[in-house]
């Protein structure tokens, strides 16, 4: 058992290195080779590098956020995108961009970004609690997903209404951002994005035991000494920070949060959550890096929206699981 686990992790780490390489050197309209790195210095350090790092952070944060949500809702199909949490974050970003430009918050880069990030986190937090309140009334995993879908539609509708009030310039960036993209993050953005993501991911280490206990349900978790309500609250907070953060920088990215934990449980037949947190970090990064490379190289000179690729990976997986009615 132990031996297989470490072999699988080694393979994943190998895949991650390959995916990084692909994304750095082939992840755009121009193929960069080692020999002419100097002539493509600017493209490499200001376009490819931040995009690759962004793909890794977004993959890690969304996957772990999905893992937490699946455990909190004890629903193997849950995730920030399918429950409408990403849309809640998006809506708050849209509102904050509008409010921010009227309040002239964006003259300072860091204040402006921080404002957007905090709004996105607040948006995810609110939707997660709304879904949590609803989940107590329904006992079907699928119905919960439908409610998430409706919430996401409502947020989307409000966002569309808001777009009417924005000028042409911000409308364009709105729409592009709303399609989800890893390419809009600059090295300056990474100064906020990377450390916040790292710290939040590190905090999860202190919640490994509650995560394992929560699998047993409220009563048994409590009976083995875990404070169910407070653990759940902090885990929702962590998950919201992860989703909100990534949505603020990359827009709503589809299905990574749902698909990666499912894949992780397929690869590692274990219920130990420290293992799944680690493998979600790896698998999430790999999938998003590969999706990005694919989006940029599938058709010459055109980069496809990243959500198109991730949806093609995630949606069939969700449908498959619904059909099999398996509880991974």
């Amino acid at each position: 058992m132990e031996k297989h686990t470490s072999i699988k992790f080694l393979i994943l780490i190998g895949l991650l290195i390959c995916a990084c390489f692909l994304s750095l050197f082939y992840g755009g309209s121009e193929t960069i080779s080692f020999s002419d790195l100097s002539s493509n210095n600017f493209i490499f350090w200001h376009i490819r590098f931040p995009k690759t790092i962004t793909a890794i952070i977004a993959g890690c944060t969304l996957a772990v956020s999905g893992l937490i949500l699946q455990i909190i809702f004890r629903n193997p199909l849950a995730g920030p995108y399918v429950l409408g949490i990403s849309s809640g974050a998006s809506l708050m970003v849209a509102i904050s961009i509008l409010a921010g430009s009227t309040l002239h918050l964006f003259s300072d880069f860091f204040i402006g970004k921080t404002f957007i990030v905090l709004s996105a986190i607040a948006g995810s937090f609110l939707i997660t609690f709304l879904i949590l309140a609803v989940s107590k009334k329904v006992n079907s995993n699928i119905v919960l997903l439908l409610i998430g879908l409706m919430l996401s539609q409502i947020c989307g509708a409000i966002q569309t209404a808001l777009e009417y009030f924005s000028d042409a310039n911000s409308l364009k960036s709105f729409v592009i951002w709303g399609m989800g993209s890893l390419a809009n993050t600059t090295n300056f953005d990474l100064l906020i994005y990377l450390p916040t993501a790292l710290v939040t991911l590190l905090i999860i280490l202190f919640f490994i035991k509650p995560l394992n206990a929560l699998l047993l349900g409220e009563n048994y978790a409590q009976n083995v000494g875990i404070n169910f309500n407070s653990s759940r609250f902090y885990l929702i907070l962590i998950s919201s920070v992860l989703t909100g953060l990534t949505t603020a920088f990359c827009g709503p990215i589809a299905f990574i949060g749902t698909a990666v934990p499912i894949l992780s449980r397929m690869v590692f037949k274990s219920s130990k959550q420290h293992l799944h947190v680690a493998s979600c970090l790896l698998i999430g990064s790999i999938i998003l890096l590969l999706s990005d490379a694919l989006a940029n190289s599938a058709i010459n000179n055109i980069s496809l929206p990243i959500n198109m690729i991730t949806t093609f990976i995630g949606a069939p997986l969700v449908i498959y699981l619904m059909f099999k009615n398996k509880t991974w």
Partner: peptide, 22 residues
Amino acid sequence: GFNLTAYDVVAAGQMPYTNSFN
């Protein structure tokens, strides 16, 4: 669900006695 085995559930009984990383 979630790959929980019989052993995992019995092991949860020892949770009050394990460290914070379980």
